[in-house]
Amino acid sequence: GATAVSEWTERKTADGKTYYYNNRTLESTWEKPQELK
């Protein structure tokens, strides 16, 4: 079946920190989402 992984995108802030952005829920998080573990 379909997985939720594609909803999350790994992004970088202007100062180079990595965060994760969810295209479906429009939420962002510093922690790696469960779906990516």
Rank of each mutant, 00 (worst) to 15 (best):
Y20E: 00
T13M: 05
A14R: 09
A14W: 10
T13P: 00
R11M: 15
A14T: 10
K32Y: 07
G16D: 03
Y20K: 01
A2P: 14
T29P: 01
Y19V: 04
K17V: 09
Y20N: 00
L36K: 04
G16Y: 02
W8L: 01
K17W: 06
E7C: 13
E27S: 05
K12H: 10
K17L: 10
N22S: 03
W30Q: 04
P33R: 02
Q34C: 15
N23D: 07
K37I: 15
K32T: 08
A2D: 13
L36D: 07
T9R: 08
L26G: 15
G1C: 15
S6M: 11
R11G: 05
E31T: 11
A4I: 14
G1I: 14
W8S: 00
A2W: 10
E10L: 05
P33V: 03
P33T: 02
A4S: 12
T13S: 08
A14Y: 08
L26N: 15
G16Q: 03
W30R: 04
Q34I: 13
Y20H: 01
R11E: 05
T18K: 06
W8K: 00
T13E: 03
A14G: 07
G1L: 14
T25N: 03
D15A: 08
K17D: 06
T29S: 11
E27H: 04
W30G: 04
V5S: 13
A4H: 13
W30V: 05
T3F: 10
A4E: 12
A4R: 07
K12S: 08
K32L: 10
V5C: 09
S28K: 11
D15C: 12
T13W: 03
T25H: 01
T18W: 04
D15M: 05
N23C: 15
K12M: 13
E7W: 06
G1M: 14
E7G: 08
S28F: 14
K37P: 10
R24G: 04
Y20L: 01
T18N: 04
V5R: 07
K37F: 14
E7A: 06
G1W: 11
Q34L: 13
K12T: 12
A2N: 13
K32G: 03
V5T: 13
R11N: 04
N22P: 00
T18Q: 04
Y21P: 00
T18L: 09
T29Y: 06
K37Y: 14
P33S: 02
Y19S: 02
Y20I: 00
K12Q: 12
Q34A: 14
Y20R: 00
T29D: 03
A2H: 13
T25E: 01
G16K: 02
E10I: 10
T3K: 07
P33E: 02
E35N: 09
V5N: 12
R11S: 05
N23E: 14
G1V: 13
L36Y: 11
G16P: 00
V5H: 13
V5E: 13
T25S: 04
T18C: 06
S6T: 10
P33W: 02
Q34R: 09
L26I: 02
E7Q: 06
E27L: 07
A2K: 09
E31Q: 09
T29F: 06
T29A: 08
G16E: 03
G16A: 03
K37M: 15
G1A: 14
T13A: 07
K17P: 01
L26Q: 15
S6A: 11
E7K: 03
E27D: 05
N23A: 10
W8D: 00
T18S: 07
Y20S: 00
T3I: 13
K32W: 05
E7L: 04
K17F: 08
A14P: 14
W8E: 00
W30N: 06
Q34E: 15
R24D: 04
N23G: 07
N23H: 12
Y21L: 04
V5F: 12
R11C: 15
T18M: 06
N23W: 15
Y20D: 00
A2Y: 10
V5W: 12
K12D: 03
T18A: 05
E31F: 11
R11T: 05
E27V: 09
Y19D: 01
S28H: 09
T9D: 09
N22F: 01
T18F: 05
E27A: 06
A2F: 12
N22R: 01
S28R: 11
T9P: 00
N22Y: 01
Y19P: 01
S28G: 05
T25D: 01
L26K: 15
E7T: 04
Y19G: 00
Y19L: 04
K32H: 04
K17Y: 09
V5M: 14
E7Y: 08
E35H: 07
G16F: 03
R24A: 08
G1E: 12
E7S: 06
E31I: 14
A14H: 10
T9V: 15
D15W: 07
K12E: 07
A4T: 14
A2Q: 13
E10K: 05
R24F: 10
T13Y: 04
N23T: 15
T13L: 04
V5P: 12
D15E: 10
S6L: 10
W8A: 00
T18G: 02
E7V: 05
W8Q: 00
R11P: 00
R11L: 14
E7P: 06
T9Y: 08
W8I: 01
T25I: 01
S28Q: 11
E35K: 05
A2V: 14
T25A: 01
L36I: 09
T3L: 12
P33K: 02
K32D: 04
E31Y: 09
R11W: 07
E7D: 15
W8Y: 02
T25P: 00
A14V: 10
E31M: 08
G16L: 02
W8T: 00
K37T: 14
T29N: 04
E27G: 03
E27F: 04
T9M: 10
G1T: 13
S6W: 09
K32N: 05
P33A: 02
L26F: 15
K32E: 08
V5L: 13
S6V: 09
S6Q: 11
G1P: 12
R11Q: 08
L26Y: 13
T9F: 09
G1H: 14
A14Q: 11
E10H: 03
L36C: 12
L36P: 05
Y21N: 01
D15G: 08
G16V: 00
Q34W: 14
E35W: 05
K32V: 11
N23F: 10
S6F: 09
D15N: 09
K37S: 13
W30T: 07
E31P: 02
A4M: 12
E27Q: 12
T3H: 13
R24W: 09
A2C: 15
D15V: 03
E10F: 03
L36Q: 06
S6P: 11
T13I: 02
A14I: 11
W30E: 05
Y21Q: 04
K17N: 06
R11A: 07
S6Y: 09
T29Q: 13
E35D: 11
T25W: 01
Y20T: 00
T18P: 05
E35L: 07
Y20P: 00
T18H: 04
P33G: 02
G1R: 08
K32Q: 09
S28Y: 14
N23V: 15
E35G: 09
T29L: 06
K17I: 10
K37H: 11
T9Q: 14
K12R: 12
T3P: 12
Q34F: 13
L36E: 07
W30Y: 10
Y21V: 08
P33M: 02
E27Y: 04
Y21G: 01
Y21D: 01
P33Q: 02
R24K: 10
D15F: 06
Y19F: 10
E10W: 04
K17T: 09
N22A: 00
Y21H: 06
T29R: 13
Y21R: 03
W30A: 05
T18E: 03
